[in-house]
Nucleic acid binder design. Structure first.
Lengths: 197, 197
DNA sequence: ACAATAATAGGACGATTATCCAATCCGGTA
DNA sequence: TACCGGATTGGATAATCGTCCTATTATTGT
């Protein structure tokens, strides 16, 4: 039988293993940081043997890139879904806020996956941070498009970055103090801000 | 001669060395992160020999605690200075903002020293993050006192945390995008917010 | 000047790190 | 059935990590 179409086919054994590695790495990088996650950690979490992982990824950096790509795909799908679920620009922006409150448990425990990753990589690994920055770009552009829909022109991107920054700040403080109430209170303020735009 | 009063005396040789270690570690932890800084890095930056540093600090965690203490002392002195320089609560709050804009170069390059440290330690090292959280407490309490001066009651602490979070968010985004203009623009907005309180 | 203490010098430790490699296995194709 | 390439196994690598010793040399208070 000829090889099935990649987009619809069930994943082959190797593709499953590869996806499993990326899933485990994504979780570990989030919970323990990139540097705080060792190759051994990923191998053990994936239930593999040491050498096997090198069949799929040559370096740890390659795994990070795959994790970033997976994040991009998942968040991209989210954004697309919000656009289909809500037609009003403000409703779409509120969906962004709902994601934050909906993930308050993880946010309070581990911080923002995107923000903490960029903060860590921005210290020493400029090359990797540039790749991770794409995650911010994704949200920035999507949010800016919503502000454009609301009639904003040149300041749409500034508003998007303002909103992103507010969200990041909330995540940092909520994480530092493990405070869900603060997260709820601050996102409620942000909701008022959105409705006023 | 009796030992000089510690607070006024010139530092002894050992105290100088110790202070030098803390200074180097403070800079390295900021620029490369806690995990990204090795014992060897600190030793080399301090111009010491491997074993010698253990005469001053038993573990790397001890060094971190000393770095946090130094941060606390320095920022505490800053806060005290602002209280002496400005008598109006809002002027004191604006001094906080001036610190941010005054340090824009480092902030854009390495992020907020307090925020990034807490974010990193919050991932895996809860015990250490609790110590680092004291830096946030310092600012939170000081800012809350200023809002109390402005006539706010129960919400003084919430306002302080809001301001802290806004500042953190600005630092994160400005760092991710290496964007000084964004930092200026956002702090200007924060200035308007302060003046409206 | 002397005894006690502090500081320096330099090597060594086991554990862990990312990375790599050869040998074996297995499933689909010829 | 024989075969071939991807997948698995399991160990080995050199480098680096934080930590710890033991001498030897300065500095200190008396």
């Amino acid at each position: 039988m000829a090889r099935q179409d990649k987009s619809t086919a069930a994943l082959s054994k190797g593709e499953q293993t590869r996806a499993g590695i990326v899933d485990c790495a994504k979780r570990l990088f989030y919970e323990h940081g990139y540097d705080g996650t060792s190759f051994t950690d990923i191998v053990e979490a994936s239930g593999l043997y040491r050498g096997n992982i090198y069949h799929y990824f040559k370096t740890k950096d390659d795994i990070l890139q795959a994790v970033i790509d997976q994040h991009l795909a998942e968040f991209g799908a989210l954004l697309e879904m919000w656009e289909q679920q809500h037609k009003e620009p403000k409703a779409r922006l509120l969906a962004f806020l709902n994601m934050i409150t909906g993930r308050k448990l993880e946010l309070v425990q581990y911080g923002c996956p995107i923000g903490s990753l960029n903060t860590e990589l921005g210290k020493d690994r400029r090359d990797l941070q540039e790749a991770a920055r794409a995650l911010f770009d994704l949200f920035r552009d999507w949010l800016a498009a919503r502000f454009t829909e609301l009639g904003h022109g040149d300041d749409a991107e500034s508003l998007a970055l303002h909103l992103l920054g507010r969200a990041q700040g909330i995540a940092v403080i909520a994480h530092v103090y493990h405070d869900q109430k603060l997260l709820k209170r601050e996102t409620a303020q942000l909701q008022s801000w959105i409705e006023a735009q």
